[in-house]
Design a protein around this nucleic acid. Structure first.
Length: 220
DNA sequence: GCCCAGGTGGGTA
DNA sequence: TACCCACATGGG
């Protein structure tokens, strides 16, 4: 595949350095889906607290979330931040799940990926990253998730202009790599791992597996 | 006290 | 279409 080499190199190096990341954390496709909403512009540590609260309250199911008043959901997910906004988003999501698949997320795997993505994007609170996280991590579709870490890292490697849009970044990966959900899953998780550790702080650059090919270092 | 974390929607020019 | 802002907690 044309242009695939740099992306393969990055993947191989990250996998060697960090090993499999076993993503997405979550006991069920529904928990993964809820996590995709709660993690919007939030630290995962806070998301875990919200999910634990939902579990403890017996509220981590589509039926329970449809039944609960939005104020109660907001209280349970308080640690996640934007709790009022996210409570409304969860409501919209579980209403959609009932309509889309009768709450059986696994049934969605047989549907056309593009149609499913457009359908998800029409749900309040589901943008491109959230839709793709659900498609890949909850449904197993071969879509590449682009997040802030991915943009930053790809930009620093000089593989794409940092101001490119979501779809531009996605085409970069999907167009140059084989469409393998397992590899896309691992690749995105590894980019987040890198972003959370070495890529976050300048002094840690020396331990970054991509140190020598990072423009950020060459410019210094 | 400040910055940022696995974004999205709505309003305005 | 392209910005700008609201939405909010918790850890470093």
């Amino acid at each position: 595949m044309p242009g695939a080499e740099p992306l393969r190199t990055v993947y191989d190096r990250l996998l060697t350095a960090y090993g499999p990341q076993h993503w997405w954390p979550g006991d069920s496709p529904f928990e993964v889906t809820v996590g995709a909403i709660l993690t919007q512009s939030a630290a995962w540590q806070n998301v875990e607290k919200g999910i634990a609260n939902l579990k403890a309250a017996g509220a981590l199911s589509p039926e329970a979330l449809r039944r609960l008043p939005v104020e109660d959901i907001a209280r349970l997910i308080h640690p996640c931040g934007y709790y009022n906004a996210k409570a409304r988003k969860l409501k919209a999501l579980v209403l959609w799940l009932e309509e889309a698949c009768g709450d059986h997320i696994e049934k969605l795997s047989t549907r056309n990926t593009g149609e499913l993505r457009r359908w998800l994007l029409a749900v309040h609170g589901v943008g491109p990253e959230t839709a793709d996280s659900i498609l890949l991590y909850a449904i197993g579709k071969p879509v590449f998730v682009i997040d802030a870490y991915t943009r930053r890292i790809v930009g620093r490697l000089g593989l794409a202009p940092a101001r490119d849009g979501y779809d531009d970044f996605q085409r970069l990966f999907v167009g140059r790599l084989r469409r393998d959900p397992h590899m896309f899953n691992e690749y995105h998780a590894l980019l987040v791992r890198l972003g959370k550790t070495a890529c976050r702080k300048k002094p840690l650059c020396e331990v970054c597996p991509l140190f020598d090919i990072c423009l950020f270092n060459k410019a210094r």
